[in-house]
């Protein structure tokens, strides 16, 4: 078996409030293979979003190590870290909040390309147009502001921004939770297509086990800052061994009937 693309081991993070200390992450360990989707599920407050942000170096953990493609991610600083950033990207839950309120579609896509020196001004415009087309948007949208396009379109722009620098890993933090079901289905399809085409690994954070099961190869179940169960998505759903996983399975609403099999 190959070495994982990213492996995080023994990650801990404690927030000290005025009166008490809260362990957001308690010795959590996960690993993601190249081209694989790891689902990160858990109830709210389980630490899944904190862990996702630790992987992106948005939050510095108190303890633990992260190995990304053979290099120590937590030791990287300055220019070295910036070069790695091009390979680890993120898509947020609320696409409106994830863009500068003044941004246009064009400027949002130009930023990562410019920062990483990918092409001159015109070359970047062509790359951005190609990205928009790849995520199923009309390149003519480039001149619009982020405010002027729909929620589903915004999330597509966010995905285009995330794939702009050719990343190996994208962390998706509840990236489809705020979308309407019809939009959600199409975004999930797009993510799966992009993964096949570019061998991108995903860390897919969600509180919805059904969506995670649909898109993830493997699942890590979190509760109270710990990873309480890991396994293939179908195994965890079929035979949950932890009470947390059991509760997540039971909580998924089921359709009372379906057309055709009534």
């Amino acid at each position: 078996m190959n070495a994982p693309l990213l492996s995080a081991a023994g990650i801990s993070k404690t927030y000290s409030g005025a009166s008490r200390r809260v362990a957001a992450l308690d010795n959590a360990s996960i690993a993601v293979m190249r081209g694989e989707t790891l689902g990160l599920v858990g109830p709210s407050g389980s630490g899944k979003s904190t862990l996702a942000r630790v992987l992106l170096r948005l939050i510095e953990p108190d303890a633990g190590t992260i190995d990304f493609d053979g290099a120590d991610l937590l030791a990287q600083r300055g220019e070295r870290l910036r070069r790695t950033r091009r390979r680890i990207q993120m898509v947020f839950q609320d696409p409106l909040a994830a863009f500068n309120p003044r941004a246009t579609v064009a400027s949002a896509l130009d930023d990562p390309l410019r920062i990483h020196g990918m092409g001159g001004r015109e070359g970047r415009q062509a790359i951005a147009a190609g990205l928009l087309e790849r995520v199923g948007l009309d390149p003519a949208l480039a001149s619009r502001t982020i405010h002027e396009i729909s929620g589903g379109q915004r999330q597509r722009v966010a995905i285009a921004r995330a794939i702009a620098t050719g990343p190996d890993l994208i962390v998706l933090d509840e990236a489809v939770s705020a979308l309407d079901v019809s939009v959600r289905a199409k975004i999930l399809e797009l993510l799966v297509d992009l993964q096949r085409e570019r061998e991108i690994a995903y860390v897919f954070v969600s509180h919805d086990l059904a969506v995670v099961r649909a898109i993830a190869h493997r699942v890590a179940v979190m509760d109270a800052g710990r990873v309480v169960e890991q396994g293939s998505a179908s195994d965890v759903v079929a035979n949950p061994s932890s009470p947390t996983a059991r509760a997540l399975v039971d909580a998924v609403p089921r359709l009372a009937a379906r057309p055709g099999n009534s």
Partner: peptide
């Protein structure tokens, strides 16, 4: 603390540019 500032860090924007542009 907003997401778009986190997004700017994720795409590798330098701190000074984040402060002045975002």
């Amino acid at each position: 603390e907003r997401d778009y500032v986190a997004a700017a860090r994720v795409i590798g924007m330098r701190p000074l540019e984040i402060a002045l542009r975002e």
